[in-house]
Structures are given as structure tokens and as C-alpha cells.
């Protein structure tokens, strides 16, 4: 089987300082990869480099495109990359406000990607927007409300709907549960898990919350100071941490 995403020796430097370096992994269709680490460990830099928001200084990010098979997204042309990022890719920001258009209604937010790929039928756009609102547990009656009238959890769910409406195959998530209270987090995770399984999505989730990766991720990568210090199956890494930093990380979680 061809990996959906092959990351080969990716490095991003900020001047002399290391953002992230020597990152290698393969992501297979339907697989969810977690990236954990403390603040400043380079996990968001890595995610942004993979998603095309930053240009890596070294390495290859090879995505298995529908049309042309595996292509290096770092060297592909910008129009192609932008096309990918609104069709086959999705990016869920930590702050829903970064990923939503706050002055546009919920329906318009969901419809934007559809219109960006050429859908010009109002009725069908609206129907799919309503369908997706339902899937992320937002009432139909809120379709014409602006996201600013939504709670934090609803905004995050709306952002997810907006991203998944074009049926992407790879979702990048940057701390999707950050800033939400635990019960809302639990519902969001439940929803994400359902969507990932149902749509057969592949995902890369960056978080510092080990509970999130325990629930969602099949595999786990632990980062520290821009380097990957440990990787493996999630349960294996969390239950039998080998690297000193991973042990610290796992033991830092409060057991309630």
C-alpha cells in the first residue's frame, strides 16, 4: 500500500535556531498520527511545514494525490498546493477564529470550500451545509447565525464541518481541543473519533494533551527541542515510555 503522506528528513530553521529537524515518518490511509511535546518543541512548526503554511528548509513531504500519485508538496507549484489545501487537505486551527470567517454565517462558512471548488448551486450548497451542521451536532436553525454568536465548542465544531465538507483525505489538527472545558472536549473528541472512522480520514494531530492522543491516535511521535525523541504505537509509547522526556511527560499527567 502507498503511504498517503511520506515525510522525509524535514527540517525548518528559524535563522540559527532549530524549528524542527530530521523528521521522518509515513502516514497510511485511515491512520491517525499524534505529535506531542511541550511548548516550543517544534510540533506546530512541523505541522505548518507539512501543511504548506511554512516552507521547510530541507526534506520532502510527499502526498499521494488522487490524480498524479505521490508528489512532493514542497516543490509543487503554489496553485497546486493551494488547490490541495482546499480539497484533499483540511487544517483545523487551535483557535476557531483563525479558521473561520467570523463575519460570514455558519452556512456560508461551510459552503466556502464548496464554492471554491466550483459549486454554483445555492440549493445544493445550503443542503450540504445543513447536513454538515447536523453531523457536528449544531442545530439546523443556527445555519444563518454568525460564528460570533456561537460558543467556543460550537465554533470548533463548525470549523471542523467547514474543513471536512469537501471530503478531504488528510486532516491537520493543531490542538483541536485547546481552550475548551473538559466536557466539551470529551464531546468534540467523540465527534472527531466518529468522523475519522466513518470517513476513513487520515489525520495528524498536534497536541500537548496526552488524553487526546490516547483516544484518537494510532501512532505517536514525541518531540523535544525540534527533534523526534520517540515514536511508536500510541499505547506502547504511553504505557512503556523509553526516552527520559517521554517518561517525564507521561508521569506529569495528573491521575484523577
Amino acid at each position: 500500500m502507498t503511504p498517503l503522506l511520506q515525510v522525509k528528513n524535514v527540517a525548518k530553521m528559524y535563522g540559527a535556531r532549530i524549528g524542527c529537524t530530521e523528521v521522518n515518518f509515513d502516514l497510511y490511509p485511515g491512520e491517525v498520527m499524534g505529535i506531542v511535546g511541550e511548548s516550543g518543541s517544534g510540533k506546530s512548526t512541523l505541522l505548518n511545514s507539512l501543511a504548506g503554511h511554512l516552507t521547510p528548509d530541507r526534506g520532502e513531504v510527499i502526498f499521494d494525490t488522487r490524480a498524479d500519485g505521490p508528489v512532493d508538496t514542497v516543490t509543487m507549484s503554489e496553485p497546486q498546493r493551494r488547490m490541495l489545501s482546499r480539497t484533499d487537505w483540511a487544517f483545523v486551527h487551535q483557535h476557531a477564529r483563525d479558521g473561520l470567517r467570523m463575519s460570514v454565517s455558519a452556512g456560508g462558512n461551510i459552503g466556502e470550500r464548496l464554492m471554491a471548488v466550483g459549486d454554483r448551486h445555492y440549493g445544493s450548497i445550503r443542503e450540504r451545509a445543513a447536513d454538515w451542521l447536523g453531523r457536528v451536532e449544531i442545530a439546523d436553525s443556527r445555519i444563518d447565525d454568525r460564528p460570533s454568536a456561537f460558543s467556543g465548542g460550537m465554533q470548533q465544531r463548525l470549523q471542523i464541518a467547514r474543513n471536512l465538507v469537501t471530503g478531504p483525505r488528510l486532516v491537520f489538527m493543531d490542538e483541536p481541543t485547546g481552550g475548551l472545558d473538559v466536557s466539551v472536549q470529551a464531546r468534540l473528541l467523540d465527534l472527531l473519533r466518529g468522523l475519522v472512522r466513518e470517513m476513513g480520514l487520515s489525520a495528524i494531530i498536534v497536541t500537548h494533551d496526552l488524553a487526546v492522543v490516547r483516544l484518537l491516535a494510532d501512532r505517536l511521535m514525541v518531540m523535544k527541542d525540534g527533534h523526534v525523541v520517540e515514536s511508536g504505537l500510541t499505547d506502547q509509547v504511553l504505557d512503556d515510555p523509553q526516552h527520559g522526556y517521554t517518561q517525564l511527560l507521561v508521569s506529569s499527567v495528573l491521575q484523577v
Binding site: 460570514v104 452556512g107 466556502e112 445555519i143 444563518d144
Partner: peptide
């Protein structure tokens, strides 16, 4: 696509 978002908003409102 964004231009149509504006028209979409018009119709929905």
C-alpha cells in the same frame, strides 16, 4: 470562491 460566499450570504439573509 469567496465572491460567491458574499452572494450566498445575500440569499441566506
Amino acid at each position: 470562491g469567496l465572491m460567491h460566499v458574499k452572494l450566498y450570504e445575500d440569499i441566506s439573509q
